[in-house]
């Protein structure tokens, strides 16, 4: 088996499949699937969740960095005992990271996984050579 030597695009998984490195995965109708309604909906559902959320947490983190830099007085305000705003802000970054990870995973399990699996199952079942071995 020489698939190890080939780029990822052209391996029929674990089947001897001697395509030149630049040959497309001609066996499956990827272009049709990509423009189909089902995949468009999956892409929208993924991107409309992950992209704004990424921008959101990066801005929230940058806000923290910028406040640390340019709002020393505010960040140094004591909240309880020796614990100041900077500290609380830092801990809040931990909390939001945990929450976002949980929220994304919930979204993915409920909205993305079923759609992805449906498309994948159909593609692989239709494949002439029984593609896909995960």
């Amino acid at each position: 088996m020489s698939t190890a030597a080939q780029p990822p695009a052209d391996h029929g998984p674990h089947k001897a499949h001697e395509a030149p490195p630049d040959a497309p995965h001609e066996a499956l109708p990827f272009t049709e699937v990509q423009s189909g309604a089902e995949f468009t909906e999956l892409r929208r559902s993924y991107r409309s969740f992950a992209f704004p959320l990424t921008i959101g947490f990066v801005l929230w983190y940058l806000l923290y960095v910028l406040l640390s830099n340019y709002a020393g007085g505010f960040m140094g305000t004591k909240v309880v005992g020796n614990v100041n705003v900077a500290f609380v802000f830092g801990l809040a970054q931990f909390v939001t990271t945990f929450l976002i990870a949980w929220w994304y995973s919930r979204h993915a399990a409920a909205k993305l996984d079923p759609k992805a699996e449906a498309i994948r199952a159909r593609l692989e079942n239709d494949a002439p050579r029984g593609e896909g071995d995960a």
Partner: peptide, 11 residues
């Protein structure tokens, strides 16, 4: 091909 595979895990 890349987009469909990366989002669905096909193949």
């Amino acid at each position: 091909e890349l987009e469909v595979r990366s989002l669905t895990g096909t193949g």
